[in-house]
Amino acid sequence: MNWTIFGIWLGALLSLSLYSFLYKDNPFYKFAEHLFVGMSAGYWVIYTIKNVLIPNWWENLLPAEGGMQPIWLIPGILGIFMVLRIVPKLASLSRMSLSLIVGTGAGLTMTAMFQTNALAQVNGTIVALGQGGGWFNWVSNIIMVTGVVCGLVYFFFSKAHTGIVGRTANVGITILMVAFGASFGYTVMARISLLIGQTQFLLFEWLPTMGIHL
């Protein structure tokens, strides 16, 4: 059996089954959809075991050079507590694991995330208006600084959006609308490129297996 051609046919038939939803919901779509859900879940389970748990936990608990590191039992036990959430009588044990995740996550957010998502962004916004280029860069820099400040004013709800605050917030909404439009267009184009990729797969990889060359 030619496994390459078998693989191409599997991929093509499943892709066509999924695209059939564009006409209407049908058994082919439902079959492929359910298969996709199951296989994706299985893929992520194995990915987590092989790429996260074995190298980061198991190999630290039982190093190749021998001996056991008992300290690494703690995350393992907390992990098992987490899974016990599916056993109603023992579900409360998962609070310990959740606490560790929430506490560490909160601490990380306070420092690392704040540095990258707030301080670095503020730093990037404070630019010399005339930096490089001519009048065009100057105008662009003004739009950038005004956009960030007005956008932030729009998100500030401790003061009523009336008077000067309201007018500033209105400018903020305008900038945000342009930004959301751009992000939307960018997302659509990413999806379209996937569509083009799948269409090319069907036209230039699958059809030639039946002797049809475009």
Binding site: M113, Q121, F155, L176, A179, A182, S183
Partner: peptide, 20 residues
């Protein structure tokens, strides 16, 4: 690079404050 980045930055800074 300009209006989109300005809007995204406003969202990111606002969200970062909320997260803190």
């Amino acid at each position: 690079q300009v209006p989109n980045l300005a809007g995204q930055r406003a969202v990111m800074i606002g969200a970062a404050m909320g997260m803190v």
